[in-house]
Design a protein around this nucleic acid. Sequence first.
DNA 1: GGAAAACCTATACCTTGGTATAGGCTCGTC
DNA 2: GACGAGCCTATACCAAGGTATAGGTTTTCC
Lengths: 205, 205
Amino acid sequence: MSDACVLLVEDDPSMREALEDLARSVGLTVRSFPSVREFLDAPRPDIPCCVVLDVRLPGQSGLDLQADLARDPRAPPVIFITGHGDVAMSVRAMKAGAIEFLSKPFRDQDLLDAVQAGLERDRVQRDAFADLSGLRHRHESLTPRERQVMGLVAAGRMNKQIAADLDVSEITVKVHRGQVMRKMHARSVADLVRMADKLGPATAV
Amino acid sequence: MSDACVLLVEDDPSMREALEDLARSVGLTVRSFPSVREFLDAPRPDIPCCVVLDVRLPGQSGLDLQADLARDPRAPPVIFITGHGDVAMSVRAMKAGAIEFLSKPFRDQDLLDAVQAGLERDRVQRDAFADLSGLRHRHESLTPRERQVMGLVAAGRMNKQIAADLDVSEITVKVHRGQVMRKMHARSVADLVRMADKLGPATAV
DNA sequence: GGAAAACCTATACCTTGGTATAGGCTCGTC
DNA sequence: GACGAGCCTATACCAAGGTATAGGTTTTCC
């Protein structure tokens, strides 16, 4: 399980140690931070992670940190633990996408289950992001004209229609189109359509 | 706003009346039910809805009802209200997809906001479902062979490859393919690919 | 037994897509 | 001023896609 990591943000040293022991007992790697500050200053490990976060922390609160993280599409999932949580707090956390919100005392297994769910979600998210960034990279290697042609092809337009749209000859379109297929590593139009959809509005005409 | 409806499940008559008045005051249509039983027995209106649900109800609990509803992909979104909610309850509800979980006393505006959010989500969900069911209907009108061809076309295979896959002549594939485009109302291969993806694994080969 | 539906095939013909090769133009950079 | 990148075009040729028309077989169902 060294390909996954739990990021623990907890100010109470005894609690911190107990949670570290718990996580390590099932083979998880743990990095602990006593405050949001130190968590943010530390480099993010480049493996599937999930954050275990006390709601009440010195300085910035756990909920604020979650909101900050949510701005980054690559941010790891968050699991909250708290001593004195209330319903409003938990609802806010869950609405913002938290995996779990546990009140102390909680059962060890509940936390471990949540951690596994969080790691699994991060794995999926990281894979999706890696795919997408490869795709984006290839898309950026297209010239502006090629990008236009890609969008129109993905929209289902025929070469002659594209030629009319762009006011160029049909053969020019064919050349661009061939370049697009090559640069995007698309083996069929179906491939290209799916790539365009993943890239989203960036490819829309 | 008669194109939307709030389904209120609440056993306390005074509370029920207060909530009805609140919803009606902003022009919402309301149908009230004193128990889960009566809610389930009533026909579901065929317009965007959302359910406002007391967690604690005689007979089946609100959380149980939510779980039942979740089995139906067309089920309306749920908003919980409760007098004595705890954190575990709210987390469970939110994990199961609830829009909001409000503890009494709550601000009227908070409930109205949640209702609007719920109705909006149901509108989107209903539109998506209507699209999909039209698509499914057309897909079902295909003969088995045509479905196979559709899957292979959407996978990006060429006619001659499809012919080899199915061990028929290429011309046969062309005929089936033409039928598929016609029956599915696809104006381009790009169209067909997107339809196949929406239909999901049903079209996979 | 006969009608209908699904499936397969073929000929003939036309449209669309794709590539190789080759050349011209413009603009910005070194 | 030379160079490269991006863009546009053309000829020629070949591969793939699409349609109309027509006819065949098998299976199913009344």
